[in-house]
Amino acid sequence: MFTPQGPTLRELAVQALSSVERGYDLLAPKFDHTPFRTPDLLLDPVARALRELGPYETGLDLCCGTGAGLGVLREVCAGRAVGVDFSAGMLEVARAGGPAASYVRGDALALPFGPVFDLVVSFGAFGHFVPGQYPDLFGQVRQVLRPGGQFAFPLPAPPRPGSRGYWAMLGFDGVMRVRNAVWRPPFVMYYRPFRLGDVHRELGRAGFDVALRALPELGERPDGSPRCRLVVATRRS
């Protein structure tokens, strides 16, 4: 996809007609050659912001994929860094070429850890959860954080209504909803529902205090607001 090393159109079609887990298992060997891999352009500002918020000892990358976000944890955590993902194929690629870390296969809605982490991060995974799952997802994150630990993730500003990005996102979500209405198993990947207001409210209900930090390296919108913020949710004791 977009590069000679990326997946072919046929491979993407097979992935799209699979379950989420099976689809990512199939895509894993070529995932880092697609636009879906979180770019360093985003990872570097997040690492800078977290260095200012730290120090941290232990960190977890939730839905780590092939391990791009684990590089951030290795920068900001003095101790153990762990990646968790439910795709065995993605974890295999991460182990082979990712940062030095521990890799665990697990479900984000049933995390196999106690309260042992000071920091949880996640990059680009929230489209795989529908709004009704946010309480369980955020509850699981709270469960694995020590009191005072932080859950941090970048959240881009939504595209302006009528813009090219707005129509692209609306069209993608529409195609996915039609696909899931007529084909099984479902492939959950919706970009529009993960909105700041809803996320802020559900994090508060889950036992977090929420703060926002602009990521100025990623620029501003025409109205002067940040193009991307870092959501920092601190677990209450």
Rank of each mutant, 00 (worst) to 15 (best):
A233M: 01
C228H: 04
L17A: 14
G59L: 05
M90Y: 00
Y103S: 02
R221H: 06
P154E: 05
P185Q: 12
P216L: 03
E220D: 12
F2S: 08
V232D: 08
G132I: 08
F172C: 02
T58E: 11
V182M: 05
F2Q: 06
V120C: 03
E57T: 15
A16K: 14
P7S: 07
A125M: 10
L42E: 12
L91C: 12
E92D: 14
Y24R: 10
V210M: 05
P159C: 03
D85T: 04
Q15K: 10
R179Y: 07
C77G: 11
P226C: 03
R74I: 05
M189S: 13
V76S: 12
T38S: 05
V14I: 14
S19A: 09
R177P: 04
T38N: 00
G59M: 08
G207L: 11
D107H: 07
A88P: 06
V130L: 15
Q143R: 15
R164P: 02
P35V: 13
G106D: 00
V141C: 02
L212P: 04
P154F: 02
G97S: 11
P135W: 00
R51A: 15
L155K: 13
V93D: 01
G67H: 01
G149H: 06
L155D: 07
M1N: 08
P159M: 03
D61Y: 11
G69R: 09
Y166G: 00
L73K: 10
D25V: 06
L9S: 15
S237Q: 12
S122V: 06
G162V: 14
G69D: 07
A81V: 15
P39W: 02
E75R: 15
M176A: 14
L12Q: 07
R177G: 06
G23V: 12
R213V: 11
V104K: 00
E202H: 09
A96T: 02
P222E: 03
R10G: 09
S102C: 09
T58Q: 08
G89K: 01
D136F: 03
V116T: 14
G124R: 04
G71Y: 15
F31P: 02
L212I: 06
A78D: 12
R48W: 04
N180M: 10
V72I: 14
V231C: 01
T234I: 04
P35C: 10
E202V: 06
E92M: 05
K30M: 08
W167P: 05
V84I: 14
R142K: 10
G124K: 03
E11D: 13
L26A: 14
A47F: 09
A211H: 13
M90E: 03
S19L: 05
S19I: 06
V130S: 08
V175K: 13
E52I: 07
R235P: 04
P135A: 05
A96V: 02
G204R: 11
S225K: 11
G204T: 08
F172E: 02
Y56V: 09
D107Y: 05
G197Y: 03
G59N: 11
F36N: 09
A181D: 04
R205Y: 06
L145V: 09
P156Q: 14
R192D: 07
F194Q: 12
D136K: 13
L27Y: 00
G97V: 08
G106S: 06
L196M: 09
A168V: 10
D61R: 13
F36Y: 10
E92W: 01
S19M: 09
T38I: 01
R177F: 01
H200L: 08
S102G: 14
D25Y: 05
A110C: 12
